[in-house]
């Protein structure tokens, strides 16, 4: 077997292996779109479910997911970016900082159901927030906090020290330097990480199942202490807990959920690509 042939064979095998990832990914996308698109209608999006959820729409679940996303952004974004600023710009290089970084790294790998348990125990029961948007948003915030800290930290760290020196040498204070030079430069990276984190929260099920999600609640929340239906949890119950659900409802719900997550994902991808191009030019 010649060297050249061996190489060709190896590359062909690698291409084949890569197809084993690409095909399922595309299958998921296309299957959900193909089967779900027929269900999508004005009514499906903007009406409440009827007749034991077999008819009508999923509006309360969409509103529930949106309110959770909003709540999560409110808590997780300032806390995550603030922590990243602290770690990069203020924390001394010592054992404590190293330990904190390791802890954050580890918490990024903790299963979401474990965060759900924590949220249930602390927010729902101990602090008495009950099953509510507040409990769910706080739990999801804890869940995506490590993601946002890590991506913001990387973005802030990648700002060249040259910029910091230039600003300080002009007589700007440390905070002015961070606020006016470091953060604007790191912003695309911070935003990309935040959007991906929030997209993750939007599709999260195990954590909301334990802290906020209602099985069936065909009205809209009036305060953050209300329980809500959530898209992801709704898909879980109608596809595996309630027998005899019409396929159309399941497929439509799956498409709406994937659509919400995809909006976040493609926005982040767009920001990233645009930022890279702008950097090159």
């Amino acid at each position: 077997m010649s060297k050249k042939f061996k190489e060709k064979l190896a590359f062909a095998v690698l291409a084949l292996i890569t197809m084993c990832v690409v095909i399922p990914a595309l299958f998921i996308l296309l299957y959900i779109i193909y089967n779900g698109i027929g269900t999508i209608s004005w009514e499906f999006i903007f009406a409440s479910p009827r007749k034991g959820m077999t008819e009508g729409g999923i509006f309360p679940a969409i509103v529930g997911t949106m309110s959770l996303i909003l709540g999560t952004i409110t808590f997780a974004l300032p806390l995550g970016v603030g922590t990243a600023i602290y770690l990069v710009e203020y924390a001394k290089k010592n054992l404590l900082t190293k330990f904190i970084s390791l802890a954050i790294l580890n918490l990024a790998g903790v299963p979401s159901v474990v965060y759900g348990l924590f949220g249930l125990g602390l927010f729902v029961l101990l602090l008495g927030f009950g099953s509510s948007i507040l409990s769910g948003a706080l739990t999801l915030s804890c869940l995506i906090l490590p993601i946002i800290i890590k991506s913001s930290e990387a973005a802030i760290r990648s700002v060249p020290d040259l910029y910091r020196e230039a600003s300080l040498a002009l007589g700007a204070t440390k905070w002015q330097t961070i606020y006016k030079v470091v953060l604007p430069t790191a912003m695309p990276g911070i935003i990309t990480g935040a959007i991906l984190g929030i997209g993750r929260a939007a599709g999260e099920t195990a954590a909301v199942l334990l802290t906020v999600a209602a099985f069936f609640l065909p009205r809209l929340p009036s305060s953050i202490m209300d329980q809500v239906m959530v898209l992801s949890y709704h898909l879980y119950i109608i596809s595996s807990q309630v027998p005899g659900m019409p396929d159309a409802v399941k497929n439509g719900t799956a498409l709406v959920l994937l659509g919400v997550v995809a909006i976040f994902f493609f926005t982040a991808t767009f920001v990233r690509i645009k930022y890279k191009l702008a950097n090159r030019g």
């Binding site: 998921i28 993750r200 599709g203 959920l257 994937l258």
Partner: peptide, 12 residues
């Protein structure tokens, strides 16, 4: 495509 796969919610 691979990043998209990682964004697909596990419930889906």
């Amino acid at each position: 495509i691979i990043e998209f796969l990682s964004a697909v919610p596990s419930v889906v």
